[in-house]
Design a protein around this nucleic acid. Structure first.
Lengths: 245, 245
DNA sequence: AAGCTGTGAACTGTCGACAGTTGTCAATTC
DNA sequence: GAATTGACAACTGTCGACAGTTCACAGCTT
């Protein structure tokens, strides 16, 4: 496992150990290497990563604020596990934020931003014609990321990213990724069109509708029984909750 | 100052020092005792509060996640200062979240919750008839808090509370609190009516409009020059940014 | 006199160690 | 045999100390 990261996120290649530890534990949680409900020991983590307990403690505090773990006094940290209802709540909240970002971007759009959206849209259309699901999936993520990053409201972006991460704690996800590329594509086109033409309220509505449909598409892939928790399997890393959008 | 707190928030009357320190520093920032732009020294804070540097460091990390301070590597923490544009962004984001909460509450309302809203509304009307600005101001806060706490989406509530706190970092606020009680009251009535009758989309719109108007009422009380930063005065604690709503 | 450089103080980042608490397990008692 | 109690182990909460970095100021050079 490489130790030095080359993310263009916060510059500064020599980060503090706290940030390094937090990033690594977050990665393990999001990829499922550390399953939800797992109890983490500061000492074990510190020994595992070859650092002292101080940075680990600070990292845990950061993960708690991000909603990824719960800290119980004198007992330690446990990886949060969210249930069906909470996942739906998060999806709705995320949809509202995404709609807000579409609305904001429509108000502040620049020509360069519009060009990016158009490019992504064309590429997605091509991916559909080529029936390339994986490519469409990646472009789909890029399309969303473009709006989130370019909307101009940095706080909204930070909160949105946090919610997306938190949603990974919902473990029971469907396997199929894009159920209906055409429907997803039409919604994307509506969003981009509204943003490009500056119709803010239409952009907001299109964004909200898109994520609501994405939520329904996602929930439809789940087991019909929303009460049964704890699916036994916990293997294979790197699956995304943000599937069918 | 009493040491043991009795907040029904996270239970546990004997909190860790980290939480205590974080709460205290947060209080000082929000009340203005620690002005924006101020540089905080861990050692000084630790000595001031009679604790070690460890809990102080953890508390600072938490305040950074909350957006109240910036941590600069090897240099320390500075209390964040937000400018005019950022304050407007936060207000808009807050408005969107508030609208979402109104919408959610309209969907999940119970009779008891509706009764609470009706009570607050009646009390506010009475306060207007009595021309009691202070009472109206307090009831206004309670009305908002009722929606935020009862909407049923706990994550949305946590984020909303964080944004409200963050908005206190915008220092140039108007002195007058409620400019137009009647207009504020009409908007409150519209919100409550929509929630009680279960019209979710109407509730959302009413909530968004209310905070947009509140934002405009608030911004109208500012100096006409949005470029001049750093008003010299920094006295008198406990003023609220959430003024004219 | 202006610019550059080296030294020093102050502070952060990190570590190891100690005290207090919690949960467990075995021995004891009814 | 079951419940209670006591001690032990593991862990967290907290502290003091050391190393590395940053910034400022004084002295030197041109």
């Amino acid at each position: 496992m490489p130790l030095d990261e080359h993310k263009p996120f916060h510059a500064s290649s020599v980060q503090s150990l706290t940030v390094l530890v937090q990033r690594e534990v977050e990665r393990r949680i999001l990829t499922g290497a550390l399953p939800a409900g797992e109890r983490l020991s500061e000492s074990a983590l510190a020994a595992d990563m070859g650092v002292s307990r101080g940075p680990v403690r600070e990292a845990m505090r950061g993960l708690e604020q991000a909603g990824l773990v719960d800290i119980i006094a004198n007992k330690g940290v446990v990886i949060r596990e969210i249930g069906y209802d909470e996942a739906v709540d998060l999806y709705d909240l995320r949809g509202t934020l995404f709609g807000f970002m579409c609305e904001t971007m429509a108000r502040r759009r620049t020509d360069a931003q519009c060009a990016v959206l158009r490019n992504k849209l064309n590429a997605m259309a091509a991916a559909i014609r080529a029936d390339d699901t994986d490519l469409y999936y990646r472009l789909n993520i890029q399309f969303h990321a473009a709006i989130v990053e370019q909307c101009g409201n940095s706080r909204a972006r930070a909160i949105y990213d946090g919610i997306v991460k938190e949603m990974h704690l919902f473990r029971r996800r469907g396997l199929s990724r894009i159920e209906n590329m055409e429907a997803s594509m039409r919604e994307h086109a509506a969003i981009a069109e509204a943003i490009i033409s500056g119709r803010a309220e239409a952009a907001r509505k299109a964004g909200v509708v898109h994520l609501r449909n994405g939520r329904d598409r996602f929930l439809a892939t789940l087991d019909p029984a929303p009460e049964s928790l704890s699916t036994p399997d916990q293997g294979s890393a790197d699956r995304s909750t943000a599937a069918a959008e």
